[in-house]
Simulated assay, not measured.
Amino acid sequence: MKKYIAGFLAGALFTVAGAAFADDIQSLIGKKIQGQTVIKVDGQVLDTAIIVEGKSYSPTRSIAEAAGYDVSMKDKEIVMNKKPVVSGRDAIAKDPVKLNELITSYKESIVKEEARLESYKKIIEQRPDEAAAYQDSIDYANSKIKMYQEWIAEKEEQLAALK
């Protein structure tokens, strides 16, 4: 008998909860549209939304696509998937002008780091007792020069592959 009562109570609970949930998902059919508003993204008009009972309802596809999502319908559900992003690096790797600009920038950075190394060497020549204090800075500048040289080699390879 206890099982029947427990089953009845569980069934009643699910019925009440389901009805309460269904109240939240009321159809908009027959509802009065109270207004319309413009949707803007970065100052550009994207689309319009309607206002029903104080809530705005906007076009999902327009907004999702503006946010970088692919939108589709599957089994009566709207499915949004993030579009694969082409990174700035990928775009630069295919642009010879940008690659040459990067190479030039890296070479300028090497010149600056070499100048910094020279200033450290002059300080050490004038005050040899402080050489140890500058060793970390010298090592860091050398590592940056090496990094820039590797980047230049990589960009030059990408540039050669485009020809």
Rank of each mutant, 00 (worst) to 15 (best):
V111M: 14
A64K: 02
E108A: 15
G7R: 14
D70Y: 08
S62H: 12
L102S: 05
I152L: 01
G35I: 09
E113N: 13
I110G: 01
I145Y: 02
I25R: 13
I92M: 12
R61L: 09
K74P: 00
I5D: 10
A20E: 10
K82F: 05
I33L: 04
L162I: 09
D139E: 13
A115D: 15
I78W: 11
L9D: 07
K2T: 14
R61D: 08
W151R: 00
Y69W: 03
G88L: 11
A67Y: 10
I103M: 03
K83W: 08
D47A: 14
A132R: 11
A67K: 10
F14N: 06
S58W: 03
S58G: 05
S62I: 00
L13V: 15
S72Y: 06
I50M: 10
Y57T: 08
A12F: 14
I39K: 05
I5L: 14
V85S: 05
M73N: 12
I110A: 03
I25A: 14
D136W: 00
K82H: 08
N81I: 11
Y69H: 06
T104W: 01
G30I: 05
D129V: 07
N81Y: 03
E101Y: 05
T60K: 09
K146I: 01
Q26N: 11
Q34I: 04
V97G: 03
N100K: 15
A12V: 15
A153L: 02
D42I: 07
Q36E: 13
K74N: 12
K40N: 12
D75F: 04
A49G: 12
L159E: 04
A161T: 01
